[in-house]
Amino acid sequence: MLHNDPIARLTPEVVAWRHHIHANPELGFQEVETARFVAEKLRSFGLEVQEGIGGTGVVGTLRAGSGKRAIGLRAELDALPVIERTGLPYASKTEGVMHACGHDGHSAMLLGAAKLLSEAPDFDGTVHFIFQPAEENEGGSMKMIEAGLFERFPVEAVYAVHNWPGVPFGTIAARAGAQMAAVDNFELRFSGLGAHVAMPHLGDDPILAAGAFIQSVQRIVSRAVDPQTPIVVSLTQVHGGNVGNIVPKEIWLQGTCRFFDPALSDLCERLIGEIADGVAASHGVSAILDYKRGYPPVINTAEAAALAARAAAAAVGPDNVSTEFKPSLGCEDFAFMIRAAGGCYAWIGAGEVGPGEGLHGGRYVFNDAIVPHVLRYWQSLVAGALPKVAP
């Protein structure tokens, strides 16, 4: 019966924690109160707790039995600079900041797993519950790694989940190999003399150069890469000029590249530079490129992915587990942790959503009904990774 099911009993408490975190969002590396809330809960469950790792990161450690093996489970603390438009009773109290990606749910569910496992430690070994700052664009996982995360808390693999709107509710998806893309970002400036619009011959026109670049750079996707290789090159910002009758001296562009093959990072940097220089030379302006390498691809290791699939089957049933699907060209800084320690990143199906209600939107609403699925998944994963040895 439900009242005898510890996960059913725990779920309302986890949802309440999620609503509290949602109402009090904090941006990357500013998650002071969120980290304090997490640390206090972990201590109340009897875990060893270390704070301030890589900024505002928190690690809670739970040991059971005499086993020497250890794994890590990770969730994110940070919110986004998004104006909330949900109208929920627990909506963000901080104007312009919102948990629009589900990190509030991920943290609350990992706290729930810590409490569940502390009350019934049906495993042999050590679990490190990792709460990382600044997943959104700031690379908080790398900051934790640089601060000695895996030297201080060694693991044989690390695992994470992410709610995934659009994936059928009640399903879990994890695949060996690439699940999320790498991301590189770039900024480009075309500079010249500018001119009065009535006398364009007395100057030059960075706007024309920018327009030519925007068209030409797409040849990377259409002509420089095997068409069966997933890659996206997108321009996301173009700025320049502030007077209606003056051709500006400078145009600034920003863009991003997404791909699964890490070798494409070098190719994109080289070709974007060559295209920019060629366009600049043909238009009589100069080009300065600042190419920034971002998150690597999330590449699940085979053994960890297999363990995750078995745990998912135990949690939601074998028919609701997907291991063969198209990866996403979205990015995720959990890639750094998998690259350092091995592991697996899984999507938790949150069901269908309407326009503007997906991740990073102001009307996004985390589906609290996935909480028991994730608690069972974490419980099964830990039991499978750190099995008790029969006496």
Rank of each mutant, 00 (worst) to 15 (best):
M1L: 06
L2F: 09
H3Q: 13
D5C: 06
R18Q: 04
R18H: 04
H19E: 13
H22C: 10
A23T: 08
N24F: 14
E26M: 13
Q30T: 13
E31L: 14
E31Q: 10
V32E: 01
T34S: 09
F37Q: 02
E48D: 14
T56I: 09
V58N: 04
V58R: 06
T61M: 00
S66Y: 00
G72F: 12
L73M: 07
E76A: 05
L80P: 06
E84L: 12
A91G: 08
E95I: 10
H99L: 14
H99A: 06
A100I: 10
G102S: 05
G102C: 07
D104W: 02
G105Y: 02
H106D: 09
S107N: 03
L111C: 06
A114R: 01
K115V: 12
L116M: 01
L116N: 03
L117P: 04
E119I: 12
V127G: 12
I130E: 09
P133N: 09
G139K: 02
F150N: 03
P154A: 02
V158G: 00
V167M: 12
A173T: 04
Q179T: 12
A182G: 14
V183C: 15
N185D: 07
F190G: 12
F190K: 13
A198K: 03
H201C: 02
D205W: 10
I207E: 11
L208V: 15
L208H: 10
A210H: 08
A212R: 13
Q215R: 07
R219Y: 00
I220Y: 10
A224E: 15
T229M: 11
P230G: 08
V238F: 05
N242P: 00
V243A: 15
T256C: 07
C257R: 01
F259I: 12
D261Q: 15
L264C: 10
L267T: 12
R270A: 15
R270W: 13
R270S: 15
I272A: 08
G278T: 08
A280G: 08
S282C: 11
G284L: 15
I288R: 11
R293S: 07
P296K: 04
I299V: 15
N300D: 13
E303M: 05
A304E: 06
A306C: 01
A312D: 09
G317K: 00
N320F: 13
V321I: 11
T323H: 00
E324I: 11
S328P: 05
S328V: 09
C331G: 15
I338Q: 02
A341E: 05
C344V: 05
W347M: 06
G349I: 10
G349S: 03
P355I: 03
E357N: 06
G361N: 13
G362Y: 02
V365Q: 08
F366E: 01
N367E: 14
D368P: 03
H373T: 03
L375I: 02
R376G: 04
R376K: 10
Y377D: 01
Q379G: 02
A383L: 02
P387D: 05
K388Q: 13
A390K: 11
